[in-house]
């Protein structure tokens, strides 16, 4: 076989989201997360033959991603140094645990976003749809940046709690 097979490609595709979510807490900006994911993908692709079918693809990919994160941290500017290496380790470990129920979380979040007050939903959509910074959102809306950041924080918390609630009620139902 000259390259990765259909199964590998399927697993690879399916893992993208989980890996992205794994990386995100380590770097905070989606641009950085995107870039690290791309580099991780390159490595995964190059090492496809080392993957043992039947084992956990995401866990395998995560290990690669973790190394990429640390590499990336070293060669980039100070904003990536905000968290100490030891803390990033802690987060990485935790982050690995928390993506096991990603699918339910996704559905739950979709519901929760739908249920936001219209105004809040629009704000979240502005922020993430074109992935612009809070400053740009503030400019679009003619609101003080400060207030936009506060609103975003509040909405994220609402969403987090809503997701929790949904997951726990879903858990109870099954």
């Amino acid at each position: 076989m000259a390259g990765p097979g259909e199964d590998f490609i399927r697993l690879f595709t399916q893992a993208q989201r989980a890996l992205y979510l794994y990386i995100m807490p380590l770097v905070s900006s989606s641009a950085d997360a995107d870039e690290i994911l791309q580099e991780t993908n390159v490595v995964i692709w190059s090492k496809w033959s080392q993957f043992t079918p039947g084992t956990n693809f995401v866990a395998w990919g995560r290990a690669i991603a973790r190394l990429e994160v640390f590499r990336y941290r070293r060669r980039r500017d100070s904003r990536l140094q905000l968290l100490g290496d030891d803390v990033v380790e802690l987060i990485a470990e935790q982050s690995a645990h928390q993506i096991s129920d990603a699918d339910q979380r996704r559905d739950a979040l979709a519901e929760c976003v739908n249920r936001l007050r219209e105004r809040d939903r629009e704000l979240i959509q502005r922020r993430y749809n074109s992935n612009v910074s809070g400053d740009e959102v503030a400019e679009q809306l003619g609101r003080p940046a400060n207030s936009v950041y506060q609103s975003l924080g509040r909405i994220r918390r609402v969403l987090m709690e809503c997701v929790r609630r949904r997951l726990s009620s879903a858990g109870a139902a099954t």
Partner: peptide, 12 residues
């Protein structure tokens, strides 16, 4: 932060 990531991923 993963929630933040989800929002970003799903939007993107």
């Amino acid at each position: 932060v993963q929630l933040h990531g989800q929002l970003a991923w799903d939007a993107g």
